[in-house]
Each structure stands twice: as structure tokens, then as C-alpha cells.
């Protein structure tokens, strides 16, 4: 897996990369993005509601506000490309095409959940959809995602692994261990840093010496791009460039998504570390779904009524998922001892 030497001068220029130009979406793309993002939004709102009612336990980290990131990246993925992320994972799973009812049933700890109720909000997987979790240790998914890319290169299957992590995880040592090996071995991995400005309650300026996360790979000659993570078209355009970079055998690339989460870090976080005005400003001026909605209406690609109909249909899907997640039985007690080992 040792790569050929490259001229130093050429490599030195790689760490800074121009940001991808936003390419306008056509009607179909706008409607698709609207639908995908709204599904995540409504799903998360419902999850928050079920949590409040005591149906979901433990930790529950909502993705509201960040929907454009997974939606834009998913649009550039092809069959066999893998996704791995942290514990704020519901949006990623829905974007991968995992069933809302089975995700919700995992949140409520039922047998029909993706992990038979044994994983919970933070630990879901789908081999079929190439979704590799769902990881609860901040930053641990980064070496794992790099390992998925190692597999792709080893098998020469042309696939790319997308490893999502936050601004908080960006300060973990294992992230840089991974960067080093990924570039050394030219592994096809896109590191998507979802910079939502707060590592739990600590603002990036209080936790990070270098707050431009797109430069975090510069010690390793990994190019990085800063992307408006609230604009699904910008994410999409950056994703295309990143995929081209990886698929052409140039190794890893970093995409810093400037995004924002509206809710607290988890359900038990009152988010006292930021002002209500700050959140409100983001909601009213930068909301990823509202941006698409305005374009759809402005270009007369959809009427208010048509958009309401989409919303209604999504609410039904989410409502059905919630119903299933409450009616589905808990796992049988005998499941306690299954899935610890695979029989050799």
C-alpha cells in the first residue's frame, strides 16, 4: 500500500483548494432536496417529542439545522460507497435510505429497530445501505471510516468512504493519526467535518487553536474546502469535487461544512452557552430547508399548496414510523445473549 513519491513542490500546493462553485439546482433536484431534508427535520421533531414523552431514553442527539450536509453529500454517492458518523446519526441514516420506522423503533428500543433495540439512538448500522454506524466515542469513527477506505483500495472496488465528524472530534488525536495514514496510503476517504460551532457547550473559538477546519489536513498535505453547509447546492458541488478527487486515486480530502444545530447538544442540554438571538438569526436567515422552499416558490416550480402536500405526506411517513416504534414489541429477553459472538 505504499504510494509512489510525488514531487514536493506539487504537493505543497495541495492543502489549499478553491471552494467549489455553487451550481444551480434544476426543479427535480430542488424538490428532491426539499423532500429529503424535510423528512429529516420532521423525523427529528418527532423524535424530540417522543423523547419528551419518555418513549425514547438515554442520549438523543438531534440533527435539526444540519440537514443540507447529509443531503448534499448523499446526492454524489454511488452504490457501495460507505457512510460512517458519530452519535448524531439519524439524519445520515435517513439520507442513506434506511427506513424511518426501523430507525424510530431503534430509538424506542424495540425489536423491529435496526439493531433489534440493542443499539439505541447512537448505534445503528445497515450493511445493506453501507451505513457503518452510529459511534458513541467522539472521533472513533474517523479511523474506522479510514479503514473502510483501506478496504476499498485493497479490493480495488472504486468505492469511496465518507467519514463524518464534528468540530469537537476534530481535536481528537486519532483523527490526525488517520489523516496521516490516509494520505500516506492514498486512501479514498472524504472527511466531512460538520462544524456546527459548538462541541457540546464549548464554542470552537474556546476549543480550537485553528478554527478553519478545512486546513486541519495541511500538515499531511490533505486538501480541504470550506463549504456553506446550510446550502445544499454548495454541499453537493463540493461533494462532486471531493468524489472526483478520491475516485481518481488522489487520496483523502477534507470538506468543512459550516453548519448549525438548532437544538441542544443532546435532549438534556438547555444550550445556555449561546443566545436565543443567535439561534433565531440562523433559523430565519440561513435555514437549509427554507432556502430551497423559497427558490421553489420563487421560480414557480412548486406552489405553496404543493409544498404543503409534500409536508403532509412526510408527516404521515413520520407518524407511521412513530406508531410502529410504539406498537412494536420490545426485544425478547432471549435477545440479551444473542449477537455477542458469531459462531465460528
Amino acid at each position: 500500500m505504499v504510494k509512489k513519491a510525488k514531487p514536493a513542490a506539487k504537493r505543497a500546493t495541495r492543502s489549499k483548494k478553491a471552494n467549489a462553485n455553487i451550481v444551480d439546482y434544476d426543479k427535480e433536484q430542488e424538490l428532491h432536496a426539499y423532500h429529503e431534508m424535510l423528512l429529516i427535520r420532521r423525523f427529528e421533531e418527532k423524535a424530540g417529542q417522543l423523547y419528551g414523552m419518555g418513549h425514547i431514553g438515554g442520549f438523543c442527539h438531534l440533527y435539526i439545522g444540519q440537514e443540507a450536509v447529509v443531503t448534499g453529500i448523499q446526492a454524489v454517492m454511488t452504490e457501495g460507497d460507505q457512510v460512517i458518523t458519530s452519535y448524531r446519526d439519524h439524519g445520515h441514516m435517513l439520507a442513506c435510505g434506511m427506513e424511518p420506522s426501523r430507525v424510530m423503533a431503534e430509538l424506542t428500543g424495540r425489536q423491529g429497530g435496526y439493531s433489534k433495540g440493542k443499539g439505541g439512538s447512537m448505534h445503528m448500522f445497515s450493511k445493506e445501505k453501507h451505513f457503518y454506524g452510529g459511534h458513541g466515542i467522539v472521533g472513533a469513527q474517523v479511523p474506522l471510516g479510514t479503514g473502510l477506505a483501506f478496504h476499498n483500495k485493497y479490493k480495488e472496488n472504486g468505492n469511496v468512504s465518507v467519514a463524518y465528524f464534528g468540530d469537537g472530534a476534530s481535536n481528537q488525536g486519532q483523527v490526525y493519526e488517520s489523516f496521516n495514514m490516509a494520505e500516506l496510503w492514498e486512501l479514498p476517504v472524504i472527511y466531512v467535518i460538520e462544524n456546527n460551532r459548538y462541541a457540546m457547550g464549548t464554542a470552537v473559538t474556546r476549543s480550537s487553536a485553528l478554527t478553519d477546519f478545512s486546513k486541519r489536513g495541511s500538515s499531511f498535505n490533505i486538501p480541504g474546502m470550506k463549504v456553506d453547509g446550510m446550502d445544499v447546492r454548495a454541499v453537493h458541488a463540493a461533494g462532486i469535487e471531493a468524489m472526483e478527487h478520491c475516485r481518481s486515486g488522489k487520496g483523502p480530502i477534507i470538506l468543512e461544512m459550516e453548519t448549525y444545530r438548532y437544538r441542544g447538544h443532546s435532549m438534556s442540554d438547555p444550550a445556555k452557552y449561546r443566545s436565543k438571538d443567535e439561534v433565531q438569526k440562523m433559523r430565519s436567515e440561513s435555514d437549509p430547508i427554507e432556502q430551497v422552499r423559497q427558490r421553489l416558490v420563487g421560480k414557480e416550480w412548486a406552489s405553496e399548496d404543493e409544498l404543503k402536500a409534500i409536508d403532509k405526506q412526510i408527516r404521515e411517513v413520520v407518524g407511521d414510523a412513530a406508531d410502529f416504534s410504539l406498537k412494536d414489541p420490545e426485544p425478547a429477553p432471549s435477545e440479551l445473549y444473542t449477537d455477542v459472538y458469531i459462531e465460528a
Binding site: 460507505q82 471510516g145 479510514t146 479503514g147 473502510l148 483501506f150 476499498n152 488517520s178 496521516n180 495514514m181
Partner: peptide, 21 residues
């Protein structure tokens, strides 16, 4: 051959194993 980076290469190994190697 890996760099001296146990946490990182152990994780890469696990990721590769999850994918089937």
C-alpha cells in the same frame, strides 16, 4: 508497515474488518 500510531491503525484495522477484510 504502519507509522507508530497504535490508536489509529487499530481503528483502521477494525474499519477494514467491518467492511469484510
Amino acid at each position: 508497515d504502519t507509522p507508530i500510531t497504535e490508536h489509529g491503525f487499530a481503528g483502521i484495522g477494525v474499519g477494514a474488518a467491518l467492511a469484510g477484510l
